[in-house]
Design a protein around this nucleic acid. Sequence first.
DNA 1: CCACCAACGGAAATCGTTTGCGGTCTCGCG
DNA 2: CGCGAGACCGCAAACGATTTCCGTTGGTGG
Lengths: 346, 346
Amino acid sequence: MGQDGRHRRARSTITDVAKAARVHPSTVSRALSAQPGHILRPETRARVVAAADRLGYRPSALARSLRLRRTLTLGMLVPDIANTFLAGIIKGAEEAAHERGYALVLCNTGDLPEREATYIRVLREREVDGVLVASTRMADATVDGMRADRFPFVLVNRGAGGTDDLVVTVDNIAAAAAVVDHLVSLGHTRIAHVAGPRSTTTGAERAAGVVAAARRHGVHAEIVEAETWSEAEGYRAASQLFRGEPPTAAFGANDLLALGVLRAAREAGLAVPADLALAGFNDTPEAVLADLTTIHVAQEEMGAHAARLLIARLEGEPIAERNVVLAAALVVRGSTAAGIVRRRIA
Amino acid sequence: MGQDGRHRRARSTITDVAKAARVHPSTVSRALSAQPGHILRPETRARVVAAADRLGYRPSALARSLRLRRTLTLGMLVPDIANTFLAGIIKGAEEAAHERGYALVLCNTGDLPEREATYIRVLREREVDGVLVASTRMADATVDGMRADRFPFVLVNRGAGGTDDLVVTVDNIAAAAAVVDHLVSLGHTRIAHVAGPRSTTTGAERAAGVVAAARRHGVHAEIVEAETWSEAEGYRAASQLFRGEPPTAAFGANDLLALGVLRAAREAGLAVPADLALAGFNDTPEAVLADLTTIHVAQEEMGAHAARLLIARLEGEPIAERNVVLAAALVVRGSTAAGIVRRRIA
DNA sequence: CCACCAACGGAAATCGTTTGCGGTCTCGCG
DNA sequence: CGCGAGACCGCAAACGATTTCCGTTGGTGG
């Protein structure tokens, strides 16, 4: 190992290999890339390969991308890496991308439109082949820009109103309605919904699902809109809710909001599920931990699906569905258990 | 915007801008990069700038990197994106990197050495300027390789035995000892430690801290080594522990292991903290949720610190400490509360 | 023995930037 | 009016790969 300990060893280039193997650089290229059209004498190829790994040669992806006009890289915009729901999506996307030889560059937008715009600019300067966007708003200038430029992108989890976009989501309306159905079946008639921001499709659709289902059952649903998707906002919204006569059931538009409601409920002395039935959305690890009834979303599959869809678009493969709606299922846990007085965890 | 709706608009290059502004490409380059040495007639510069944004010109980071021999990109190897502890580190690293104009490419190794090797190869082909490694083992061929090539890297969270590496960690021995001190102070004398894999510095050091502290207090510490850092392994290890006479206190080498122990305890009918005091390590969001006593680690700071250290190394800035040890603090929560009979969560 | 063809591999152009070098122009001063 | 000093900016050579286009071999069939 590194016997030239002194200074950083220079990267060897295709020319170095060519010299070492006494062939032309073009021959090195042919020997190393297993393209079908390349016919090389086995002996020549062997000599090149030998020289290549004697020198520890690694082709420069930079130079190759410049010439080939593609980087085999995908960008991905997420509102928050530390959100476990998104982490699942990212993981699925990363693996699917890697499987097809693409790398993934992650960008944390913090759900801020201007950071989103900045990152898209950076990604496009870096010439990523396409991007996965998990942080869209409904009216989103960044997405409009990509649409206008016909720059390849896929929307994940949240849509953006456009009818022609490639999108991977779940059926939010049906899922939210399923939660309400479940709560009503337990006998609840005063249901609160802590909605996500209406500026996002997920927030708007889930609230719409709640409203529709409530109307169908003839029960009252009170909607409070949170400003962000965070636990803190769930707490804030719930504290406000509990000031008056508290509802008997609450449904957070995602698990974090529901956990915020849980914290507020505990502080208000409301026991879950005895005094307040509680449900969330996404089925993150936290939901499992808090024994929270929620909607299960196949996170990794969602990410993987989105990545594969984008790659299919990039490679010009036929696209079966432009608008993929994954199945989501109600998972009933202790937080809405009927007849159970109290459960303990710790 | 995009009035040529038909086909993908070709990216405009520096040459296009040069033509449009009736200058040489080199002049465009000078006009657009605010280097101190470049003297341009204001009028010329204005003409170039105008042409550039009329054409929506964006310099190709690819071509620039090729020429400049640096990509302003960092790679980062993590065992699992979906792990909230790592998510915090990643977030901190990503932000610090972005602040200094670097992008971050994430790679999920799944804690598998061969995937680690593959990813390092990919990253180096892409000519990232350096990498952050959060998934090292103690004897790690990949790290050895980078050391030998003098390729810039920083180890985060886990070290790798090398004395000369750039490393950002916490004082695992002291922190683990603090947990034992705390448990002993509550009167526990039969303490179990579910250790992380000894092949990692974190696993080995925390176990060592436990052993040392136990000896110092003259109490018995039983060590069970988990094979991975997962909740499932914690559960498995604990189930095994509980077969005989169960200990009165258990300490998981990270929060996930501790949560696994919690699940096993519940199944074994042991109440926490009444029958079993429980502690973890890292202070992840899950620990807060489960009201788990743990060691607080400043995750984002750790990631940010590591990124800044790497960038300092890359830019040839002076490096104060090669081996940064961040402070960690014991956070006492309900899972080790003295005198509390039972707490409920849901 | 010659012609022809396939197989092989060299030369050079290209991808989009940056930058050292030096040419031209403008100005001010003697 | 001549000359030197800057100022400004064009030229061309990199950076490291891929690929098209040919020229050269060597073998084979007539």
